[in-house]
Simulated scan of single mutants.
Amino acid sequence: MPALQRLLPEFPDIKVEIVIDYGLTDIVAERLDAGIRRGETVAQGMISVPIGAPLRMTVFGSPAYFAGREKPAKPQDLTAHSCIDLRLPTRGGLYAWEFGTARRQLRVRVEGQLVFNSTALILAAATAGLGLGYLTEQQVRPHLQDGRLVRVLADWCEPFPGHHLYYPSRRQQTPAFSLFVEALRHEG
């Protein structure tokens, strides 16, 4: 929002509409000017502008969840745990947890009693001791810092490209849109 705080007062005629959709929306078909996605999910043929720092995933659980349980030491150990799954709206399936080191990449299909399509519900359920969650470090950081959650498998969670603004390379951009892209570029 800092980019909007700087841009809008200076250019009161600019109008911005923000639509939040957790699916992989086709911005061309939906006639949207731009979208924001994690860097690795931007479609080919789009101009991509980094607008945030790299991200890092985090596996976490509450101290109550770990009471009497051994913490996982490697991703394969997750099979002995109740994991909270995320259902992706566009892909329809459950999100495979991704892990990696300099030498090895893994995608682990986890199981548990709970499946949500909301990261807020995953965070709440894990905080309540109902299983292990998997979200970005940014989403979980306050809960880790105050001890409500405990991080595990940190060595297996490598940083990856953060959020990118993307838009079609063939469409002529308005001056207002160009100003918006520049403001976001300087924020990231």
Rank of each mutant, 00 (worst) to 15 (best):
L4G: 06
R6V: 11
L8Q: 01
P12K: 10
I20L: 14
I20R: 15
D21A: 05
D21R: 13
Y22H: 15
Y22D: 15
Y22W: 14
T25Q: 11
D26E: 00
E30L: 14
R31T: 05
L32G: 06
L32N: 06
D33E: 13
A34I: 00
I36K: 02
T41N: 11
V42L: 06
V49A: 03
I51N: 02
L55H: 12
R56L: 04
T58N: 09
T58K: 04
V59G: 06
F60T: 08
G61I: 09
P63C: 08
A64N: 12
Y65E: 07
G68R: 07
E70P: 10
P72E: 01
P72Q: 01
D77E: 08
L78S: 11
T79G: 08
A80M: 06
I84V: 04
I84M: 07
R87Y: 05
L88V: 07
P89F: 00
T90D: 14
G92V: 02
G93F: 01
L94M: 02
Y95C: 09
A96Q: 13
A96C: 05
E98S: 14
T101I: 01
T101M: 01
R104K: 14
Q105F: 15
L106V: 03
V108P: 10
R109P: 09
E111L: 13
G112I: 03
G112S: 09
L114M: 13
F116C: 11
N117K: 09
S118R: 15
S118W: 00
A124V: 06
A126D: 10
A128Q: 14
G129P: 02
G129A: 10
L135R: 09
L135G: 04
L135T: 04
T136K: 12
T136L: 01
Q145H: 11
Q145P: 03
G147L: 01
R148F: 03
L149H: 00
L149I: 05
R151H: 06
V152G: 06
W156A: 01
E158S: 09
P159E: 07
P161M: 02
H164G: 04
H164F: 03
L165N: 10
L165H: 04
Y166E: 11
Y167S: 00
Q172R: 14
T174C: 00
L179Q: 01
F180Y: 14
F180I: 08
R185E: 14
E187T: 11
G188K: 01
G188A: 00
